[in-house]
Design a protein around this nucleic acid. Structure first.
Lengths: 210, 210
DNA sequence: AAACGGTTTAAACAGATGTTTAAAATAGCC
DNA sequence: GGCTATTTTAAACATCTGTTTAAACCGTTT
């Protein structure tokens, strides 16, 4: 395994667990068993390392996501919102073959990126991977044509929030659920739990009474 | 204004903007125009300061929240989920009279607390203010009796996630909305937008097919 | 006026942070 | 083997972190 990949793997795990600000380069390099200076040699800076960790996942995920959403859009008849959201499941779960804890790590990183470091990661994702977003918007548009662009905007961000936030604390939540309900869930089951919720949320009737 | 309150005000604003880890005591004390050592003198440590900032809001909010939820529970007839969630609106908006940007700041702080510092704030809130949560669970239970405790657990956390996550990036989202749709919203309108979404999410049909 | 408790202050503390340096080690190539 | 370019290494860098210290300050009480 190359030094570069050892750093990426260690950084990914630590970033997911403790956030970007909460993880030092020394923690990363000692877990990766490489020299401290290797990060700046291979990546230039900590900020570039964060981008590299996210890019590795996005480059794996975004083509699968785009084709899955495309398939839903192009199937004959109007797709349901459940179908649109379900299109995410397989690509997301496939990250587990790409990397250990891949699905969970990626979603946690996404959550971190929205709140840590003044949202520069949100800028990075929306500018670097605009296709995923526009494909998704098209799919939802087809499934729920009555939704105005403005309502769509908000509901997509609510959805993003639900997913990302849930996943960023999914480990803690799964622990609680295991204790309280005696049922051990994996990340796939949590995703299955959240889909009806977000689908119903997006499909909620529009309240123009106010 | 006392030194203690000057620190609390400055810390609140900075914590909301940049997170707990992302804000140093020197930033806080220089914005508050007090000496650096004042934080440790008055609060003991940074961690205690964080608790104090949150407590100031929770002590203001939780009695209002409890009585609002109690009122919804005790009204005759079965309350709707929209009513349950709407019970949060007035208490939350009342924070704006208590403090400038109070509503927005508090919700952002809540969002920070879930992801920053390994969730110690989640522990703090659930142990220090269990009444708010149990009142809320009761109210939802009444509004949607078919929901099993396990599904309830997940959907309440999805809801928490939606709210908190949306609000923690509400400033950025409101900016985008103002640009794209030429409509300036305030925090109250965002809350009104999110209520149908979370109400429909919690009310979603249970999928036991898997 | 003196003594006192509470508060503020400047300074220093020890440790952690991201980054840079220059020498050492390693690899690939003629 | 000898040369070159890439990579690794230990050490130092300057800066920032939360916290502590001890002296100074202030209003109150004796």
């Amino acid at each position: 395994m190359s030094t570069k990949n050892k750093i990426l793997d260690a950084a990914e795990q630590l970033f997911a667990d403790k956030g970007f600000n909460g993880t030092s380069l020394r923690e990363i390099t000692s877990q990766a068993e490489v020299n401290l200076a290797a990060v700046n040699y291979h990546f230039g800076s900590k900020k570039e390392l964060i981008k590299a960790v996210m890019s590795r996942y996005m480059n794996e995920l975004s083509p699968r996501l785009e084709s899955a959403l495309e398939a839903v859009c192009q199937q004959q008849g109007q797709p349901s919102l459940i179908q649109v959201f379900s299109a995410f499941v397989e690509p997301l779960l496939s990250l587990n073959e790409f990397q250990e804890n891949g699905t969970s790590n990626f979603l946690q990183l996404l959550g971190r990126g929205y709140t840590d470091s003044q949202g520069f990661l949100r800028w990075f994702l929306t500018t670097q991977y605009p296709n995923v977003i526009s494909y998704f918007v098209d799919a939802v548009q087809k499934a729920y044509p009555e939704l105005t662009p403005e309502d769509m905007f908000w509901r997509l961000h609510f959805t993003m929030g639900t997913i990302v936030f849930t996943m960023s604390s999914s480990d803690a939540l799964m622990d609680i659920a295991a204790n309280d309900f005696d049922r051990k869930m994996d990340i796939g089951e949590v995703i299955q739990q959240v889909i009806p919720y977000v689908a119903a949320g997006v499909a909620a009737p529009i309240n123009r009474a106010d």
